[in-house]
Amino acid sequence: MTLDDILANLFPAGHDVAAGPDRLILGTGRRRNGGTVQVIGIADGEPLGIAGVLPLAERVLRVIAAGDGAPILVMVDTCGQRMARRDEMLGLNEYLAHLAKCLRLASWHGYPTVGLNYGKAAAGAFLATALATDILVALPGAEPAVMDLPSMARVTKLPEDTLRALSRTTPVFAPGLAAMAEVGAVAEVWDPRQPLDAQFEATLANVPGHDVRDALGAARGGRRLTADLVRRVAAQATGGAHVAAS
């Protein structure tokens, strides 16, 4: 589905959302119940750099300041953070973290945040956007990944074929939507043959009040250790001085 198709399907009551020349998505959609949805995002696989972060974060902060409690939808099709010397020189880590923090603050103020991965999503740009929402959904065909296999082969110095074979059996490592769902990052995959507005409303009704991704990863079997480790560390931390087992 193209961005326009998705938007038309998501907001049959109307919207003014569009991707600008900078491929940043900004706008407002109308819900069936008459309410609004604030939409931000990044389109066409564009990398997210410091120039892209600023308007997106500014919009989120304005929404919070306005105080109407409207949900925020973060639509993501990005190949990752911009890889450029100048962006790094200016502190891209602060910019990306700032956007993530703005989204977390919105949640803190009672604005439900929903991530929608409909294309690529990778690395630092993924962390700054879709992974900073309360709940992340995806459309079939989405390609979330930390890094593609050829790049991974270069960095790990392992043959690409070996990595491809391993990626079939190991969700903690495999690029792609199925693996990201199994580890608990992607909560739901929407059905594009069904109306998206109804699915969006259903997702909104299911926004968890706390981070459930570790539990989801354990339940789905793709990330079995995290939830248990969190419990064990907490038990030792709150149990006072840890008594070592002899």
Partner: peptide, 15 residues
Amino acid sequence: LQEANAGELAVAEVM
């Protein structure tokens, strides 16, 4: 990278 999805998600959870 050998645990890329778990690692990426861990960063998101930690943030």
